[in-house]
Amino acid sequence: MADSRFDTRWRVISASVAGPNHTSLGIENQDSLRQGAVGDGLHLLAVADGAGSQPRSAHGSRLSVEAAWEAADHVFARVPRTLGQWHEATARYAQACLDQFDELVERAITPLRNRPTATGVSTVSRAEFATTLLAIVADPPYFAYVCVGDGFLVMERAPGGSHLVIPPPTGRQTANETVFMTSAGRRDDLRSGLIVDTGARGLALCTDGLIDGMLDVSRGPDGIAYPCAPADFDAYFAAFRMPGVDGSELSRKLQSKEFAASSGDDKTMLMAVHR
């Protein structure tokens, strides 16, 4: 597939590291990411976080970003030309991500059903593939997004600096409250929409393992706490805009003692910066 228009103007840097909780137990990183050209010259950025409580969640997260890729390639086979077409395509993309994920999970489960084991017959459920998804199909100034679960997006714009434009759900207390791609109520909690911003200069898609390490908490006039991007988030975009700084530097940052202390979860960041 040919490069997207995005490739000529933006630089993508990514890193995904296992959290200290998983590392200490010898458990694989259950996050996944994918990025690249899709459809008619557009670009996909996607991250997913497999639920640590489920045995096939790492597989589920891989299927989640694969579903986002395949859905984008189909829905955006022809680039939208008007704002109305963009809104319509974004709505279809959100539905296609869910449908494609369901299809991929069913393909994965089918050969495992009723397989004899030493203790009886194997039964595999959809819940074992529990994962979140945050996906963006980009053709600046248009950014179509789909979010299931507690991933978040920080966008840098000029002028204006960094802002948390897709926050993690407020009131999140335990992993049991997270909505997954396998959850029965996922459609009610599905967040999707279209961002149109000619000033966009940076994107940072993050899984929930980075909430405590990357975001601040502020309080509104009513005293209610809400997450926000710290003022120094601009420094991340500035640092990774430099050609000599790559994904290995981002990996080292995510594996640092500072980030390890903020959360025991896996940590994934997919950044894109305007050149």
Rank of each mutant, 00 (worst) to 15 (best):
S4F: 04
V179L: 03
D232I: 01
P230D: 02
G84E: 12
S122K: 14
N29G: 09
E66L: 14
M214D: 01
D197K: 09
A77G: 06
Y93R: 11
N29C: 15
P230H: 00
R172A: 15
Y145W: 12
D265F: 01
L83V: 12
T23A: 03
G220L: 06
I211L: 04
S32E: 04
G199P: 01
L45F: 09
F6E: 00
G213L: 11
T198D: 14
A37C: 06
D212V: 03
T132P: 10
D265C: 01
V179E: 01
A204Y: 00
A204P: 07
T131A: 15
G171Y: 07
V196D: 00
S162G: 05
A48E: 07
D102V: 07
I27G: 06
W69F: 14
T178F: 01
V179G: 11
T268K: 11
R201Y: 00
I136W: 08
P167T: 07
Q95C: 03
R107G: 00
C97Y: 02
R78D: 15
V38F: 00
E156W: 02
A229G: 06
P141E: 03
V148P: 10
T178S: 13
S218I: 12
A184G: 01
E70N: 13
V148M: 05
A138K: 07
L270Y: 02
V245G: 09
D189W: 11
C147E: 08
Y93D: 04
F129H: 06
A18D: 06
H163I: 07
L205C: 09
D3M: 12
V124N: 05
T207P: 02
Q30R: 13
P20L: 07
A225D: 06
R11F: 04
G171S: 09
A229K: 02
T119K: 14
F233L: 03
A229D: 02
A15Y: 09
I27D: 10
D222T: 09
M214C: 10
V47N: 00
L104H: 15
M214G: 00
P169T: 11
S16K: 00
S248T: 03
G264K: 10
L42Q: 03
A238M: 07
A71S: 13
A58Y: 03
S256N: 06
A37K: 11
D73V: 05
A272N: 05
I195T: 01
P159T: 01
E88H: 12
D212K: 13
R275C: 02
V154K: 10
P111Y: 07
D222H: 05
R81P: 00
F233E: 04
D216G: 11
S14W: 02
A77M: 08
T82E: 06
Q173T: 13
G209M: 05
